Simulated scan of single mutants.
Amino acid sequence: MARAPFIAIEGPIGIGKTSLAKKISSHFDYHLLKEIVEENPFLGKFYENIEEWSFQTEMFFLCNRFKQLEDIETKYLSDNKAVVADYHISKNMIFAKRTLPADKFEKYEQIYHILTKDMPVPNMMIYLHGSLDTIINRIHQRGREIEQHIKTSYLAQLSQDYENYMNEFEIMHPDIPVIRVNGDEIDFVRYQKHLEQIINQVDEQLQKVTSEVRKG
């Protein structure tokens, strides 16, 4: 368990991770950690030609997320200040397995394990998921030009990869609660009552974490 509440939000591209992280940060007054996306100089080329630009893209993300988490550990969590992040660094492996050829993935995996060995671990995960139609609609709604070249087939594969990953995560980390939010049924951006449902679930898990810390 982290020394302070550390919530990570995960899910496919465009499902609403950053929007929810901002709302949770505001509600609980937690520090907000947002992943670097559009600053990646290789991302546009990646969406146009995944095979050619995958290694550069994934390495940029890995190095930047490593630095972000290193800073979070020293500036916040170690000082018992709570954090909510719109990603979990293990997402790197989801994308790398899908995009990298075998020889490059082997090298990437070695670097990943070296960098993440001592990284802070969330004590709560929120998993946003939804149908392919919902994901595509939300990507179009937010209108990032860099994402307009993403192939539908890639999004479909990625969505299934996330589902497989989260199922494995719950088995491998039974001590880390996972709150699943179905984006087909819940729109926390448009409907306040939907947001309140999620906030209540988060609050319930936070109380359990606090209770366990006190018992310890």
Rank of each mutant, 00 (worst) to 15 (best):
Q68F: 04
Q157R: 15
V202D: 11
E185H: 13
V189Y: 07
I114L: 14
I36C: 02
Q160H: 11
P177M: 01
R65W: 00
D175N: 14
E58P: 06
H173T: 03
D118R: 08
E163A: 08
I9F: 00
S54L: 06
I36K: 11
H173G: 02
V209D: 12
L62N: 03
F28Y: 15
Y112F: 13
G44Y: 05
M93W: 03
I150R: 06
H113F: 12
K104V: 01
E147V: 10
I111R: 08
L77S: 04
I199K: 02
T18M: 03
V202T: 05
M124Y: 04
R3F: 07
E51M: 02
K91W: 01
R3W: 01
I72T: 13
D203P: 06
I24V: 14
K17S: 07
R3D: 10
N182G: 04
V181N: 04
I114G: 08
S78K: 15
I146R: 07
Y154N: 06
S54D: 09
E73V: 01
N64V: 02
H88G: 04
K104D: 09
N137G: 12
V84F: 04
A8W: 03
S153K: 13
E147M: 11
M172G: 00
I146N: 10
V213P: 00
D175I: 07
I13Y: 02
R180I: 02
R144G: 04
L195M: 06
Q205G: 05
E10M: 08
E145K: 13
M59H: 10
D71Y: 13
T134C: 15
M124E: 10
Y127N: 09
R3E: 12
G130K: 07
V213A: 13
I126V: 13
N137I: 08
P120K: 03
E58Q: 15
F42T: 00
S26Y: 11
L20Y: 03
K104Y: 05
G216P: 01
R142G: 12
R214N: 12
N49P: 01
K117C: 03
L128P: 00
V37S: 06
D79I: 11
I15F: 10
D29E: 08
D133N: 14
T57G: 03
Y127V: 00
Q207C: 05
